[in-house]
Nucleic acid binder design. Structure first.
Lengths: 219, 219
DNA sequence: TCGGACACGATTGGATACAATATCCAGACC
DNA sequence: GGTCTGGATATTGTATCCAATCGTGTCCGA
């Protein structure tokens, strides 16, 4: 009998990277904010070196901006940036869904139902991080079966780019009922293997999201 | 009068990153090869710290793979990876070209002609790095005017992903005449502002490239 | 009162030193 | 003979220390 979860962080930099991602989703790291290396490293219980290496990953993904000799700043999205992120998502996600949908197993559809249940449970508990996580799980079940790992990875990065903002509008309860309805419709279309229908519903879903996020974005 | 070129590297990590990119295009860093940090850092005249930070950027871009406690390895493309890279490029480049083409100025078209001239000049001198660089310049003139900076950046990263292989087939002179003809056709279609025609020619151009690269890839 | 030069403090960038881990090989045991 | 165990060695991972740079506040002069 092994340990119940070998959930050890193998290296400090990976631990720090995971913590940073969590902090971004949680809204602890706000867009535009400067990252004070020494303070943050101490808070995480490491030195600055692993922190800087984790920041470089985020820089490569466009999540933070780096200014030499001035430091790292959380990326800030303009409204045109936001529009472009969703524009690219549409291209990539449409492609992934078209390939994946016919390949979805019954188990996959079951997992989507579970994800929806998890979203609603988290909503009741006001657990925003759990909501965003379950929301991702729901959507990525539609992409990952396509067997296009690079596409999935890019889509993931695009989702990451708006994570800092998404947590803000998820807090508003009136949005939730709309999202819930949209998700149900998407699930039904997926169950029917209706590729054009699913894609159309996803377009509408994303358009709604752009609306909601851009409202937050203009502070 | 300032220095003729303020081409100083502001930080060591940026210098190292630029050197790494150059080495990849040149074929000095071969796919799959392990990167020995100490040796490489010494060769570049720095310590391991800036080198590791540069490697993290490349990791975030998918150019190198990182295995904890084992090190960094140049990414290796499977043939399905290669196909996926070009599949994504098609999606993003089609979108960018459709937007950019109507916006191209006469100067842009002139610059494309210059790029073609540069490619042929470099080919005569057998200067492979200059060829790939001019080739990029030619193609990105078709994308960058779209005003979609994130899209351009992603396309650039996808090109980077195959740089290590592209330099290999550019060495073969018999490919060059084909490429030359394709480029001329693309330029003419662009000059006529023929969006569907340009896109179709780019499809054919990419398909040819997949053929050529995958031949190299199966070593 | 405003503008600019200067110096100080805070923060980042990089080099070195040390700790942790993986790989490889030899030897023992089954 | 093959497999496993133990340790030696090479390489990576992290902490600490020092140097370089930027921003800011102050002082001086116009």
């Amino acid at each position: 009998m092994t340990a119940e979860r070998p959930r050890r962080p193998p290296t400090a930099q990976e631990f720090v990277l995971a913590e940073l991602r969590r902090s971004i989703v949680n809204g602890e790291l706000r867009p535009g904010e400067q990252i004070r290396q020494e303070a943050l490293a101490e808070r995480l219980g490491t030195s600055r070196v692993p922190l800087r290496e984790a920041l470089k990953i985020l820089e490569g993904e466009g999540q933070v901006a780096y200014h030499p000799h001035r430091g790292y700043f959380m990326a800030e999205l303009s409204s045109s940036d936001l529009a472009e992120v969703y524009r690219i998502r549409r291209l990539l996600e449409d492609d992934a869904v078209a390939v994946a949908l016919p390949l979805l197993s019954e188990d996959d559809l079951e997992a989507m139902v579970d994800a929806l249940t998890a979203i609603e449970g988290a909503a009741l508990r006001e657990d925003i991080p759990a909501m965003t996580s379950a929301n991702r799980a729901f959507h990525f079940l539609l992409f990952d079966r396509a067997g296009l790992p690079r596409t999935s990875r890019l889509i993931r990065q695009l989702w990451d780019a708006t994570d800092a903002y998404r947590s803000l509008y998820f807090a508003a309860p009136d949005n939730r009922e709309t999202v819930r309805r949209e998700h149900r419709a998407i699930l039904n279309a997926a169950r029917a293997r209706d590729v054009p229908g699913t894609i159309a519903l996803l377009h509408a879903h994303r358009d709604q999201a752009v609306q909601r996020v851009s409202r937050v974005l203009g502070h």
